[in-house]
Design a binder for these strands. Structure first.
Length: 232
DNA sequence: AACGACATCAACCGCACAGAG
DNA sequence: TCTCTGTGCGGTTGATGTCGT
């Protein structure tokens, strides 16, 4: 918003989408399918850049989108997935039917990181904070940016594996939102060599547990994650 | 009621990867 | 092998809503 455009977007509409633009985009995708984002705006009659169209569709217009009302179960799942995967929002979103990476990212930044901090857990490392959780009385005076928040936890440096792209993720981990049931034991497993998360959602009902995580970067750059569950 | 501070979230950006030529 | 194009991701911004004084 405040930055210079990455490509020539002179004459293109920016900012919030209007219902008319939404309708145009939806209509076009319903008729032609998604893809070809670059040329889509032109053919659909939209004065937007392709990226913007894609984002709008993926995050808000897709018919299978479920917005708001994140359940405590989803809450818990997000937290555990984040402890395993870090800020790999798209991977986390892939495990939450109808949720988008953007929504989860926002939800994490606004709610969950705060919640964890109040519980005395470092939202970045998921370790126990040494200092007492900050007591919030009313609203804070100084607005802290997320980057500054990260600097605050500079005591314990944790080297999470560098976020990697998982090739053809959509085909490996179906985002068909029917594959995951939060409270069932028949959870899906990611069965690729690059990403293997052993159905943490299967244990959502366990309350007092500790997850030990060891991330191994494989030879092919993939992540091997092994979970060690310890009941407390 | 008015104002300022803070919270939320939609949208943007740059970067990296994959595939085609 | 290199370049170009399309796509997807994570980080960040800023408009707007909400709350406290």
């Amino acid at each position: 918003m405040g930055r210079a455009p990455c490509c020539s977007k002179v004459g293109l509409h920016r900012g919030p989408w209007t219902p008319r633009e939404d309708a145009l985009l939806t209509k076009y995708i319903q008729a032609h399918g998604k893809g070809q984002w670059r040329s889509l705006p032109k053919t659909a009659g939209l004065l937007r850049c392709g990226k913007s169209c894609r984002l709008r569709w993926m995050n808000y217009l897709r018919p299978d989108i479920k917005r708001g009302n994140i359940t405590p179960e989803e809450d818990d799942l997000i937290i555990r997935m984040h402890s395993l995967l870090g800020n790999r929002w798209s991977l986390i979103a892939g495990r939450l039917p109808g949720r988008t990476d953007n929504e989860i990212k926002n939800y994490w930044n606004t709610h969950l990181s705060k919640k964890l901090r109040n519980q005395g857990t470092d939202p970045n490392t998921h370790d126990k904070l040494t200092e007492a959780p900050e007591k919030k009385k009313g609203r804070k005076k100084n607005k802290q940016k997320s980057t500054e928040n990260n600097k605050g936890s500079e005591k314990t440096l944790v080297y999470l594996p560098k976020p990697i792209r998982v090739k053809a993720l959509s085909s490996c981990i179906p985002r068909t939102d029917s594959t995951l049931t939060l409270d069932s034991n028949s959870a899906t497993t990611a069965s690729t060599s690059q990403e293997k998360v052993q159905s943490p959602e299967a244990e959502t009902k366990e309350v007092n547990m500790v997850w030990g995580v060891s991330d191994n970067i494989g030879d092919n750059g993939g992540i091997g994650i092994s979970l060690v569950k310890t009941m407390t």
